[in-house]
Computed example of a mutant assay.
Amino acid sequence: MKIVLATSNKGKIEEFKKLMPNDDVCAFETLIGKIDIEETGTTFKENAVIKAKAVYDKIADEKVVVISDDSGISVPLFNNEPGVYSARYAGKDATDCANNEKLISKLNAHNVTTTKAFYTACIAMVYKNEVYTVHGWMYGRVIDKCIGSKGFGYDPMFIPDGFEQTLGELDSEVKKALSHRSRALKLAKKVLDVIL
């Protein structure tokens, strides 16, 4: 099955390829070039659907499945920030480092070294012009420093429930088993098994 990912995030593309080793997975840019998709939604689901539909409409091929995910980290202490703004928390085109620094400064401003947090992933699938969505979550806590160089995004400052190490330190197979995206993708595969 040809799976087209509605993302240009290299970390997400690699993660999807590892999670879907038996499918022909490619980034949308390899088929239609770079397009700018404005994420105007206020929820992960809205943004995932916006991205998937935009790419599907450009490709205009009913034989492909376009998959998009919108995901991020939420910290209940900060009214669930950064939430849907996780990738641009420190501003448009912010680096992972800048986003992490902003979250660390927020922890410092509240005089806490760690607090509860959770990751959310919404996966949207568009096939034959129908839209399907699923969600996955991973719970844990954020800390006020970055530890480890594995993963991307907020991984070096997130410790999943039941662990003492950050996602930036954990082996990729361990992370794959617990990740919000893995959990959402397992549900997405069930949907794909029904619709394909």
Rank of each mutant, 00 (worst) to 15 (best):
G41A: 01
F16T: 05
D23I: 11
F44W: 03
E15Q: 08
E39I: 07
K34S: 08
I37Q: 00
L31C: 11
F28R: 13
T42Y: 06
I37Y: 01
E39S: 07
F16Y: 05
I35P: 04
N22L: 14
A27K: 14
E38M: 00
K34M: 07
L31W: 09
C26N: 11
D24K: 15
F16P: 03
F44S: 05
G41S: 12
P21Q: 07
P21T: 07
D23H: 05
I32N: 07
T42M: 02
F16S: 05
G33V: 12
E38G: 08
F44R: 02
K18R: 15
D36N: 00
F28H: 12
E39K: 00
V49N: 08
L19K: 02
G33C: 01
N22T: 02
E15F: 03
T30N: 13
K34P: 02
F28S: 08
V49G: 05
T40L: 03
K18V: 13
D24A: 11
A48R: 03
E38Q: 05
T40A: 08
N22G: 13
V49I: 10
I35E: 09
V49L: 06
E46Q: 10
E39H: 04
A27R: 12
A48E: 00
N22S: 06
M20H: 00
G33E: 06
F28I: 00
D24Y: 15
L31G: 12
D23E: 07
K34W: 00
E15G: 05
E38V: 02
G41W: 04
D23V: 03
M20K: 00
A27I: 09
I37V: 06
D24N: 14
T42R: 08
F28A: 13
F44C: 10
D36S: 07
K17Y: 03
P21V: 15
E46L: 02
E29M: 10
V49R: 00
D36W: 02
K34L: 01
G41L: 10
K34R: 02
M20R: 10
D36K: 00
L19W: 09
K45M: 07
N47I: 14
T43F: 13
N22H: 10
F28G: 00
E38I: 12
F44A: 09
T43A: 03
T42A: 08
V49M: 11
C26M: 10
G41F: 12
K18C: 14
N47A: 04
I35A: 09
M20G: 03
A27L: 15
P21I: 13
I32R: 12
E29G: 05
T43I: 05
K45N: 10
N47F: 03
L19M: 13
G33A: 03
A27V: 14
K17G: 09
L31D: 11
K45L: 08
A48G: 04
I32M: 12
I37E: 03
T40H: 00
E39Q: 09
K18N: 12
A27S: 15
K17A: 13
T40G: 01
E46Y: 03
